[in-house]
C-alpha cells in the first residue's frame, strides 16, 4: 500500500479550493496504485483547517502547528513536510503547483532524494508503469515522465483536475511534532503586500475576463472590462504585456509564467494570443475573443470571435447581457 501525502494550502483559516483539485489527483493516483491518501496541514493555529478537511476521506490528517510555520518560508516548510513524509512512510508527496507549491516542493524532493514532476495534468499508463503527464515548451508538447526514485514528489496543475467532493466520515487528526528550525534557515519574513479584491480568485473562478495591452489606460483601461466581470461574477485576468505596462497587478497574469486557468467561460479582450498566453488559458471550456485585428492568433483558439473595438463592444455586451438576464 503506497501512501500519498497531500499538502493542504490555506488562507486565514480556510482551506484553499485548489487543494481539493490536488486531492482529486491524489485519489486517482491512489486508485491506480492501490494506495491511500493522507493530508498535511502546516502552519500556526491551523486546527480549523484540519477540521474542515475531515470529510474528504483522508486516512489521517497530520497537523504540524508551530509558531515558526506562521508564514510559509520554503526552507522550514520543506523540512517539516519532508520529516512528516519520512515518519509516515509516504511514497508520493503532492501539492498544488501554486507559488507556494513551486517554492517548497523541490526542496522536499531534495531532502527525500526524490525525483519531482512539475505541473502534472494527468496520469497515464505506460509500459513502465504509471507516468505523470506534464506540459513542456509552454504547453506546445506533453511529456510523460516516470520517476525512478523510491519516493515521488509531484506538483499538480489544478486546472486539469476537478475539485474532490466530500465523501463524509471523519478522518482522524493527528498532531505532528514539527521542528522547522527557522533560526537555522537564515531567512526572515519582512512583509506581504496583498492584492485586495472582492472578485473570486482567478484560479478558482468559473468566468475569467482577461484584458491585454490593447486596453490602453487613456481610453479607459481595465475599467472597461470590470462591469463585465462584475455582471458574470467573474475574475479579472491579464496578459503579461498588460501587467508589464502597469495596467493591473502582477498577480493577474495568465500564461506560461503566470497562472494557468480553465474556466467555463474565458474572455480574451484586446489580447493577441501569443503562445505564452495561450499556455495559460487554452483549456478553458468556452473562449470568446474580442480584438480589432481579424488576423490575430487568439482567433485560432476562440470558440467565438468578434472583430471590434473593445471600448465599444464590451459596454454593449454588458448592456445586452443585462437585458437577457432581467
Amino acid at each position: 500500500m503506497s501512501k500519498i501525502l497531500v499538502l493542504a494550502e490555506h488562507d486565514k483559516g480556510t482551506v484553499k479550493k485548489l487543494t481539493l483539485n490536488t486531492l482529486l489527483f491524489a485519489r486517482q493516483l491512489a486508485q491506480k496504485t492501490g494506495g491511500s491518501v493522507d493530508i498535511a496541514v502546516l502552519g500556526h493555529g491551523v486546527g480549523p483547517v484540519a477540521e474542515a478537511l475531515r470529510g474528504f476521506g483522508a486516512g489521517t490528517i497530520h497537523v504540524a502547528d508551530h509558531a515558526d510555520l506562521a508564514y510559509p518560508l520554503a526552507g522550514p516548510y520543506a523540512k517539516v513536510l519532508a520529516d512528516l513524509a519520512k515518519s509516515t512512510g509516504a511514497k508520493v508527496v503532492a501539492a498544488t503547483a501554486s507559488s507556494l507549491g513551486k517554492d517548497v516542493l523541490p526542496r522536499v524532493a531534495a531532502r527525500l532524494g526524490a525525483g519531482m514532476a512539475s505541473d502534472v495534468v494527468a496520469l497515464v499508463d505506460t509500459k513502465e508503469g504509471t507516468a505523470y503527464r506534464r506540459p513542456v515548451w509552454a504547453g506546445s508538447l506533453l511529456a510523460d515522465v516516470v520517476i525512478d526514485s523510491p519516493v515521488h514528489v509531484v506538483s499538480v496543475r489544478s486546472s486539469a483536475f476537478d475539485a474532490a467532493e466530500a465523501v463524509g466520515g471523519a478522518s482522524p487528526v493527528q498532531a505532528f511534532a514539527a521542528q522547522p528550525d527557522l533560526a537555522k534557515a537564515r531567512v526572515r519574513f519582512v512583509k506581504f503586500d496583498g492584492v485586495q479584491s472582492t472578485r473570486p480568485d482567478l484560479a478558482e473562478a468559473s468566468v475569467v475576463v482577461a484584458g491585454g495591452r490593447g486596453l490602453k489606460p487613456e481610453k479607459g483601461g481595465f475599467g472597461v472590462i470590470e462591469p463585465l466581470a462584475d455582471l458574470l461574477g467573474g475574475a479579472i485576468g491579464a496578459s503579461r504585456a498588460a501587467v508589464d505596462d502597469g495596467y493591473c497587478p502582477n498577480d493577474y497574469q495568465i500564461g506560461q509564467t503566470g497562472k494557468v486557468v480553465a474556466p467555463q467561460l474565458y474572455f480574451a479582450i484586446a489580447i493577441s494570443g501569443a503562445v505564452q498566453h495561450l499556455a495559460g488559458m487554452k483549456n478553458s471550456k468556452v473562449i470568446v475573443a474580442i480584438n480589432t485585428r481579424e488576423d490575430e492568433p487568439i482567433f485560432k483558439v476562440a470558440d467565438y470571435g468578434l472583430v471590434a473595438d473593445a471600448f465599444v463592444a464590451v459596454p454593449e455586451l454588458v448592456e445586452k447581457l443585462k437585458a437577457i438576464k432581467s
Partner: peptide, 15 residues
C-alpha cells in the same frame, strides 16, 4: 543519474 525520465512525448489535442 537522473531521477526523472521522459518515456513519451505527444502533441496536445488542438481546439
Amino acid at each position: 543519474d537522473p531521477k526523472v525520465r521522459v518515456v513519451a512525448m505527444s502533441t496536445p489535442a488542438g481546439r
